[in-house]
Amino acid sequence: MRLGLIGFGEAASAIARGLKQAGWSSMAAYDAVQSDAMKAKARDAGVEWATSLDELVRQSDIVCSLVTAGVAVDVAKAAASHLRPGALYADFNSCSPAVKREVGDVIKSAQPAARYAAVAVMSAVKPHGHRVPLVADGDGARALQEALAPYGCRIEVLNGEVGGAALLKMCRSAVLKGLEALFLEALAAAESLGVADRVLDSLDASFPEHHLRDLAWYLVERNLAHAERRAHELGEVVDTLRSLGMEPLVAEGGYRRLQHAAAVRASLNDPAEDVRQWLQVLARAHGI
């Protein structure tokens, strides 16, 4: 069975490397970034490189989309007409339930005999690799579980219509990305006067068993590495809450903070080298 990966960023490469080590033999990847570095990363993971998306899709039994929420539907549209009858399309992107359903509709409209799995990634892929906890729904979820579980993948299948797994992911993201936004705002302000460590000391003293300092630095580091993607994910949370009839008072504020950080990150000619420098950059940025 051949596995095709659309997008070969951090998550896809870690999953592919783990599957290869577990014994999955036939994998290929395609990424819009056709750089030598990207091709080398695939080669190091034991993954063949496809020069076009349609080539990848036509030759794959399972197609996994690991791009970004903002292009998940467009990628599905580009891939759908090339799917084999009976092929499985799995969307791993951090999308709202509505977007997951739209992706499924795109796949079924173009290839009714294809199966669809809407997958929610329930933890950071590193350090878990292919063993990262997954929750999936859709008519292809059980088939995805049966194909990947023997290689160590942990996939929980939810019964019912597409959307439940995505809602789990969005509610998780509301907390974690919201905390990220909160830490960015508080620590950037504190760093402007050189008291960020004092703030973290106080938090650890208030919650001595939970190591909030470690959590704060971890989330700030993730923001530095993936500011735009993380902002977009919290934007998906905002859309999800609104679709449920709930006003996203907290999530929308966090989204605006992460959007601001992403804009600052995009404006830098040279990225910050570490989390401390990133906080200092944010502290100097207009609109802190």
Rank of each mutant, 00 (worst) to 15 (best):
A90G: 08
L179N: 07
S52G: 11
V121C: 03
V220C: 02
Q145Y: 08
G7V: 10
W217D: 00
R2Q: 15
A87I: 03
E102L: 09
G104A: 13
L179Q: 14
E228M: 03
F92H: 12
V119F: 06
V103P: 11
R198Q: 11
Q145L: 13
G160I: 10
V33M: 04
I15A: 05
Q21A: 15
D61L: 13
S267W: 03
T68W: 05
H260C: 01
S243T: 01
L83P: 10
V264P: 04
A42G: 12
Y151N: 05
L241Q: 07
E161T: 12
C95G: 04
V63R: 13
H210P: 01
R84F: 07
G9P: 09
D31K: 06
A283L: 02
Y218S: 01
W217R: 14
A261W: 01
A189D: 00
A28P: 01
R257M: 08
A32K: 11
D36P: 02
R213S: 07
R284K: 15
R229C: 04
I15V: 15
G23Q: 01
A231Y: 02
M38S: 14
F8P: 15
A141V: 10
V199Q: 02
Q280T: 05
L258I: 05
V238N: 09
K100N: 12
A90Q: 06
P271N: 01
P127H: 07
V250D: 05
L249M: 13
V99K: 11
V132I: 14
I6P: 07
V125P: 09
Q259M: 08
G86K: 09
D137A: 10
E221S: 00
A117V: 13
P127I: 02
M27R: 08
E10F: 01
Q34N: 12
F183P: 03
Y151W: 12
A120S: 14
L212F: 14
A80P: 06
E209L: 14
A283C: 01
G140T: 10
S202Y: 00
G160Q: 07
G140N: 10
V135R: 13
R43M: 09
G104M: 10
D137E: 08
A42Y: 03
A98Q: 14
L244P: 03
D137M: 06
G9E: 04
P127K: 05
F92T: 00
A14K: 07
V99C: 09
L167R: 14
R142Y: 11
Q280S: 10
G235I: 01
E156G: 09
